[in-house]
Design a protein around this nucleic acid. Structure first.
Lengths: 200, 200
DNA sequence: AATTCAACCTGAAAT
DNA sequence: AATTTCAGGTTGAAT
């Protein structure tokens, strides 16, 4: 369960990224309102040389994939393996409106889950190197990706895996066209409006 | 425009090549009549290592594909791109009745035209190697493929691209079932009956 | 088991 | 500088 706290209103930018390659680079924070989101950490991976090399793919450890990514797929992905090549959109965990569209697949030949299309642009943009850590988070239905360099200390992206909820400020998403995050029960906590979102 | 000059008569053999992989090897020139055909050169390509390698496909440069192959497709292929996976039959340019059935497709992911199915048999049969040249010709609606080794001089298959019409002797095609080549105006030239065939 | 091949993808080069 | 082309690569299904 994730907590979403609305501070501002009016979604400013819309990063649709119609499915092609690398994430549509939204025009940063053009003065739009922000939103306080309780971000649930999903999983980290210390990337291997292959993950950042010419194979253009990230192997997602099976238990992470099945626990955190399969349930995020359009069809729910409950059944076994092959939800073929769904595209998952991950917002840049640092904010700024950038987002990455990743193709998430199961390779039956190697029986592994992988992120393929779109991954190499992230590696390039963030200068990801072997030994660095990618971090996947979630706020309701919104997904986030961030990374930290090898040996980096604490920070927004380096929340210890024991802490499930990380509050961060983010540009608010478009509320017009039936937001992706299912709206849940609202409550007031610490002086702000909170909203229970996400599955179950 | 192509010129087709009838020398003999009566189609002898019929090489239907029902669409499977490599061309049905008609029994050469089993005494059948021949026909003098003015063969229009369409285009050449110096094949790359990929074209003759394990990718089992020939990339057809877009302008060649659109100018010469799209108009040959069953549906005419006039509109934009995707005439999905049509099969084009190419007779062996050296004569002998052999023919090759090639699948001609457009790959939208790479925005390129390719010849896929059937191509590898041609590569193998003709021992095509990187640097060699494949040559595509046409006589009316009949398509021909030939090749020459790297560094080869003039010859039937090495007509310079400036010469549009190459006269060759070929086994006559079946005239029974409404020949593929649209019949055009006839005239007499150089002492032989000529027939204007082909588009426009 | 190995081969073919349709349909993807991407980096580099050309325009 | 952005777009288009394409050579070289991949996976995965079919055979």
């Amino acid at each position: 369960m994730a907590l979403t706290a609305a501070l501002g209103s009016r979604g400013a930018e819309q990063d649709q990224d119609g499915g092609d390659g690398n994430g549509g680079n939204g025009n940063g924070r053009g003065g739009g309102e922000e939103m306080m989101i309780m971000r649930e950490h999903m999983f980290d991976k210390v990337v291997t040389p292959s993950d950042v090399g010419k194979l253009n793919r990230l192997v997602v450890p099976k238990h992470f994939a099945e626990r955190h990514l399969l349930p995020r797929l359009p069809g729910g992905g409950a059944a076994g393996a092959a939800c073929p090549g769904a595209v998952l959109r991950f917002e840049d965990g640092r904010g700024g409106g950038k987002a990455w569209a990743f193709r998430f697949s199961y390779w039956s030949s190697s029986q592994s889950y992988v992120i393929t299309k779109g991954w190499s642009s992230f590696v390039r943009d963030r200068r990801l190197a072997a030994g660095d850590t990618v971090s996947f988070c979630r706020a309701g239905a919104r997904l986030f990706i961030d990374c930290r360099k090898r040996g980096a200390g604490a920070g927004v992206a380096s929340a210890p895996t024991t802490s499930l909820l990380v509050p961060v400020a983010l540009p608010q998403q478009a509320t017009s066209d039936e937001d992706r995050a299912p709206r849940g029960r609202r409550l007031r906590l610490f002086g702000v409006d909170l909203e229970l979102a996400g599955a179950e």
